[in-house]
Amino acid sequence: MIEFSGVNKWFGSLHVLRDISLTVARGEVVVVCGPSGSGKSTLIRCINGLEPFQSGRLLVDGTDLADRKALLRLRTEVGFVFQSFNLYPHKTALENVTLAPIHVRRLSRAQAEERGRALLEKVGLADKMDSYPHQLSGGQQQRVAIARSLCMQPKIMLFDEPTSALDPEMINEVLDVMVGLAREGMTMMVVTHEMGFARKVADRVIFMDRGAIVETAPPETFFTAPAHARTRDFLSKILHQ
């Protein structure tokens, strides 16, 4: 479903992705963690073309990312959830969710709203359809953002630190939605430090440092017997929080 082979990216002289090779199968849930600046956000932003890269090859759902023309179509199949939600402030929750289905999928307003309402109900916001983003808490905004991505019925969902901007008491309401999604068989890549989430639903955990993938392992191995010293060092720091 997602296949990196030898992908490299530089920001100027800074080598942010080093020779990334990685395959994610359909239905797989992969958690990416690592210290800040390790390239994990950049990695998943490459998958829907938000970041270009300079060398290597990246195939997503059979589409080569080098083909900029196919990019628009590919993005309709790949949902992306941002750390800062990025809801449209001038639109209600329901309008946020239905905008792309109406203008990209060409659904009628009625069809899009039916789908949008169902999704907002699913993420527990049945009573917030007509609220504007500023009237919602961070956790609620992020759930609207997830519904907005899901409304395009994507094949892959990417999450870039979806709970990092949230107050602690709101983290679980967002994680619960993500766990539900994982259990339904969605293909997911999640950049997060929520190790509880990784233990519960990840098929694999990837540890990145300085632009390279250092270690890849199933969660039980990753947390109990990490192979690399740098992974152990990182885990000891975040698990002692």
Binding site: N48, L50, F82, S84, Y88, A100, V104, R148, S149, M152
Partner: peptide, 21 residues
């Protein structure tokens, strides 16, 4: 903010749609 444009991109809106909507 750049994030507004990226949110539009990530749902497949074209340049003109992102501008207009």
């Amino acid at each position: 903010p750049r994030g507004q444009v990226e949110a539009g991109m990530s749902t497949g809106l074209s340049y003109l749609q992102r501008m207009r909507l």
